[in-house]
Design a protein around this nucleic acid. Structure first.
Lengths: 157, 157
DNA sequence: TTTAATTCCTACTAAATTACTCGGGTAAAT
DNA sequence: ATTTACCCGAGTAATTTAGTAGGAATTAAA
């Protein structure tokens, strides 16, 4: 079962994209600033997200990334799956060869858990997250700070 | 979120204990043979399980481990928690300081997921697992093989 | 047409974690 | 006494994560 910073970063970045939808492509530099994720690392994650056709890119100045589908059509499980291998709690990638070719004592338990997690995460779309109160609050804080930094930067120039 | 071989081994070993309950203490060597887990590694895991008072030990010849509580009173979440730090999907150990002291955009999502996983695993006791068909089948295979090996060993001596 | 912004791509690396091994203890039964 | 088993701490190889580095390709705008 892998659910580490990698998967969390991916979901966070995708949610950032969903929140700033309709303003043209969003650059990874913006996401990096807002979410505090290293730019190079974001590039690697978005390479995978693009392969899975969850985002599309626009190159050149003013370019960036956009969701390839509507935010209601992208769920959290898809995003995590795109960057991790899978939301899988078994040790055998569900093959059932966990104990020298045969299934181990707890194989079905981990299969059930995997199903549970996948069911939960696939039931939550980016659109669902966007309208959540806690997400709105944090997003406002992040956008506010970004604006603040812009003002500070323009003053000092 | 950590759910790796470590946690799976712990649950498997505890289930082995539950399956062979009432036959006196079970040695780690037996569990190692049946479940294909390194003996030394099992020792480390059982040190933690003992600290959490999930098992008790009997030293000396004929010794081993027994469940400290009834198998119905021990759930899978407790076992995983005993060896991993926790079944926690957040990156901040639920402290909410994920983004430079404040909560990150997806904090509540991972809190919810953690709750979901914990709820699922804490709803399954060792006793529940023991009576499952798939567990029974594998247990029979494992016990059968152990007996077979005994016969082969006695023949070659 | 140059410049700058941006994605794209590959390789490398530091830190952490996992999944062990090793070597010696300590307690208790025979 | 000897053996069986738990107990304990240190060390280690492999893997993964998280991130760096450097550059090439693309394209909008100056």
């Amino acid at each position: 079962m892998r659910l580490t910073t990698k998967g969390r970063y991916a979901v966070t970045a995708m949610l950032d994209l969903a929140l700033h939808q309709g303003k043209g492509p969003i650059s990874l530099a913006d996401i990096s600033d807002r979410q505090g994720i290293s730019l190079s690392y974001l590039e690697q994650l978005f390479a995978k997200l693009r392969k899975q056709e969850l985002v599309q890119s626009v190159r050149g100045p003013g370019g960036g990334y956009e969701l390839k589908r509507d935010s209601a059509q992208i769920n959290v499980a898809q995003v995590v799956d795109a960057v991790n291998e899978s939301v899988d709690a078994t040790g055998c990638q569900q093959k059932g060869n966990c104990q020298s070719g045969e299934i181990c004592l707890t194989h079905h338990l981990w299969m059930d858990l995997s199903g549970q997690i996948h069911g939960f995460l696939s039931g939550i779309s980016l659109a669902d997250l966007v309208v959540r109160n806690d997400v709105q609050t944090v997003a406002q804080r992040q956008d506010g700070r970004a604006t603040e930094e812009l003002i500070l930067a323009s003053r000092s120039s």
